[in-house]
Computed example of a mutant assay.
Amino acid sequence: MVDRPLTLMAVHAHPDDEATGTGGVLARYAAEGIRTVLVTCTDGGCGDGPGGAKPGEPGHDPAAVAAMRRQELEASCEVLKVSHLELLDYADSGMMGWAANDAPGSFWRTPVAEAAARLADLMHRYRPDVVVTYDENGFYGHPDHIQANRITTAALELSGLTPKVYWTTAPRSMMKRFGEVMREFGSDWEEADTAGSAEAAGAAEPAAVPEMPEIGLPDEEITTWVDTTAFGGQKFDALAAHASQGENIFFLKMGKERFTELMGVETFVRVRDTTDAPVPENDLFAGLR
């Protein structure tokens, strides 16, 4: 029997990522008395500025954006009842191909060993039983998400700890449903102007942005389906706390009821386990309690 609380550690790239992919499990497990630790790797400075100003446009001040997003992150954590927020505070690297990828201090440019050592220190402090981050492609190819996967993997090795480890994902069946709902609300699911965005943000070679692999996994490859329906309102409110990025948070357009209907289950792939809990499972802490 452990003499400390069961602990979930979620390692995310930017302010607002915690709500999008894991807001439900953070809220659910906090309500169940589990200690929840959120590690946010970057300052979010490549997010939208006032009036939706993009990086490199007039009115976009990365330091001011980062300060605003920190306030929003703290508000989101309050909504989700996150026990501990830890900030690595690297500079946001922007989308793949942006000049910000190689800017001094960017997370993408930071040596994995350096950031992993800092994360390993946090792992030693909190001794998580479950660690959640992104897959090796960062779910959708974002450099900071990819780097979060890399430093989490390295930090686990450095720490010598053996928590259950999960990568966030989405079932392909749900991705199809996302597309239907987005079109219903006037968005084009197929449209992805990554190269244009890179050019606007000062990328030298926007055309060189690699093609993104298909998002999500076939349903049968997903190991863990966690029902967070009861916490859909909290997850929605946590996303809404990131108001400065509202233009990019499509889900806020649909209202709490539709949002909860669509986002009431969070899905994961279990990539490390010592409990032998059978899969598919419906609890990240299966085999631990």
Rank of each mutant, 00 (worst) to 15 (best):
A117S: 14
A100Y: 03
V82H: 01
A120Q: 03
R125I: 07
A115S: 15
Y126N: 02
N137Q: 10
P111Y: 11
R70P: 05
H84E: 15
E72K: 02
N137T: 13
T110N: 00
A113Y: 00
H145E: 05
A91E: 11
L87F: 10
G141D: 03
E72P: 00
A99C: 06
E72F: 00
F139W: 13
E72H: 07
I146M: 12
R109F: 06
M123S: 06
M96C: 02
T110L: 03
S83Q: 04
A120K: 02
L119K: 00
E74G: 07
E136C: 00
S83V: 04
Y90F: 14
A91G: 02
P104R: 10
G105K: 12
A120P: 00
D129T: 05
L80Y: 08
Y134V: 09
L80G: 00
V132W: 08
G138E: 06
Y90E: 01
A99K: 13
R127Q: 14
M123N: 01
Y126W: 13
T133Q: 09
V79S: 00
R109C: 09
E86T: 05
E78W: 11
M96F: 07
L122W: 05
G105N: 06
Y90P: 01
V79E: 01
R127T: 08
L87V: 02
E114F: 05
E114I: 07
W98G: 03
A120H: 12
K81E: 15
C77N: 04
V132H: 06
P111W: 12
V112S: 04
A75I: 00
G97D: 01
F139S: 02
M96G: 01
A99I: 12
L119H: 00
V132M: 07
L88R: 05
L87A: 02
F139R: 05
D121H: 11
A117E: 14
N101V: 10
D89R: 00
S93G: 11
E72M: 06
P111I: 09
G94C: 07
G138D: 08
E136Q: 13
